[in-house]
Amino acid sequence: MYWDAKVVKPLSDYRIYVEIEDGRQGIFDMKPYLESGLFRELKDEHYFNQVGIFFGAVTWPHDQDIAPETLVEDMVPVEFMPENSLCTDASR
């Protein structure tokens, strides 16, 4: 589908960089989700960095995922992010 994720990269501060099939690129902040249910496991930075894509959805190994429509609606387009926001160093 046009909103499937095709690239995902973990960033610092519990954010992910995402490229969507239709060409959109953005940053999605996972911090608001870290205190709820299944997403608590993502607080472990090593585990958080295992993010991937499965059938177009952003996922983690233990079945956590972000609905594509949520991802597209809430991500901040890259052109509005400061350059250093794309830093992948989890210690920042």
Rank of each mutant, 00 (worst) to 15 (best):
G23M: 10
G23Y: 07
R24A: 13
R24Q: 15
R24I: 10
Q25L: 12
G26N: 05
I27E: 00
I27Y: 09
I27D: 03
D29M: 13
P32S: 13
P32T: 08
P32Q: 14
P32A: 12
L34M: 05
L34N: 07
L34F: 03
E35A: 12
S36I: 15
S36H: 09
G37P: 04
G37I: 02
L38M: 15
F39Y: 13
R40S: 07
E41S: 02
L42G: 09
L42C: 03
K43T: 12
D44M: 11
E45H: 08
E45W: 08
H46M: 13
H46I: 09
F48E: 00
F48K: 05
F48G: 02
Q50L: 15
Q50T: 15
I53E: 05
F55P: 00
F55G: 02
F55S: 01
A57E: 10
V58M: 08
T59E: 07
T59Y: 06
T59W: 02
T59K: 07
W60I: 06
H62A: 04
D65W: 03
A67R: 08
A67F: 11
A67K: 08
T70P: 03
T70C: 14
V72F: 08
V72A: 10
E73I: 01
D74E: 15
D74H: 11
M75C: 01
M75L: 11
V76K: 09
V76I: 15
P77C: 05
P77Y: 11
E79Q: 08
F80I: 07
F80K: 11
M81G: 00
M81D: 00
